[in-house]
């Protein structure tokens, strides 16, 4: 992407969001779509979040236990450090990278297909604000379901570590649980939830932008959906840096 192309995209993204972020014409239609999207984008993502969080949580505990096996450090450090990693970065950032793949490509290919088959034009011609009608329910549904996914992810990550302690015994379950509870700051949970809602907004709006601006045929829909995953991942990581510096730094 050239520099001018980049700024052009930022410009048209902003203009699109201006059309998206307005009060829907028909609340009844909006709520119908809102719950449908919540199911499609949110509820249907629970399983992947659960599975991945469980295994990554297990691996994090295992790695930390192996790598800080030092007599200088108390064993409960494993639990405390794993908890920080899971709450701070894994359950928000890494999980959103995964969701950028699943949800992002879903949104951009769905809207892109509607664009090339003239369904978006059909909406515009009826006098419906197509951007608002198609994209607003997706953004609101996904952002508002994000806390649920994060909480699932946190729980499953810590639970994965717990299972590893049961199987390997390093550290013992009691030590792990003690570690998890020590130096706990509730603030981090809120930090993580807010951060992931921000990422949820990025994922849903950016992939909708890519889908909405597709021109051409089926091949271009595929390209838009790949592009949206790549750009979303970069944006999430960059935002993570800035957000962490601003809030915790």
């Amino acid at each position: 992407m050239s520099i001018t192309g980049f700024f052009e995209n930022v410009g048209s993204y902003t203009l699109l969001m201006k059309r998206v972020l307005t009060i829907p014409d028909r609340m009844r239609e909006f709520f119908k779509d809102y719950f449908q999207e919540m199911y499609k984008l949110g509820v249907n993502s629970i399983w992947i979040v659960v599975i991945i969080s469980f295994f990554i949580g297990a691996v994090i505990v295992m790695q930390i236990a192996l790598n800080i096996a030092s007599p200088m450090l108390p064993r409960f450090t494993v639990g405390a450090v794993s908890r920080e990693i899971i709450l701070l970065e894994f359950s928000s950032t890494i999980m959103c990278l995964i969701l950028a793949g699943k949800v992002g490509s879903n949104i951009s290919s769905e809207i892109g297909t509607m664009r090339i088959t003239e369904q978006v034009d059909a909406l515009d011609i009826m006098g419906v604000n197509s951007a608002n009608y198609l994209i607003f329910p997706k953004i609101t549904a996904f952002v508002s379901f994000m806390p649920v996914l994060v909480v699932f992810s946190m729980f499953m990550g810590i639970f994965g570590g717990y299972m590893i302690c049961i199987f390997t015994g390093t550290p013992t379950v009691d030590t792990y649980v003690f570690g998890i509870q020590s130096f706990f700051r509730e603030k981090l949970i809120w930090y993580s939830i807010v951060k992931s809602m921000l990422f949820g907004f990025i994922i849903s709006s950016v992939s909708a932008y890519f889908g909405y601006s597709v021109k051409g045929g089926a091949l271009d829909v595929g390209r838009a959906s790949t592009d949206s995953v790549v750009i979303n991942s970069v944006l999430i990581l960059a935002t993570d840096l800035v957000f962490t510096q601003l809030v915790l730094g």
């Binding site: 297909t113 509607m114 088959t117 003239e118 369904q119 034009d121 059909a122 011609i125």
Partner: peptide
């Protein structure tokens, strides 16, 4: 408007 590809909502 009747579009070339019908443009029904899938």
């Amino acid at each position: 408007v009747l579009f070339q590809g019908s443009a029904l909502f899938d």
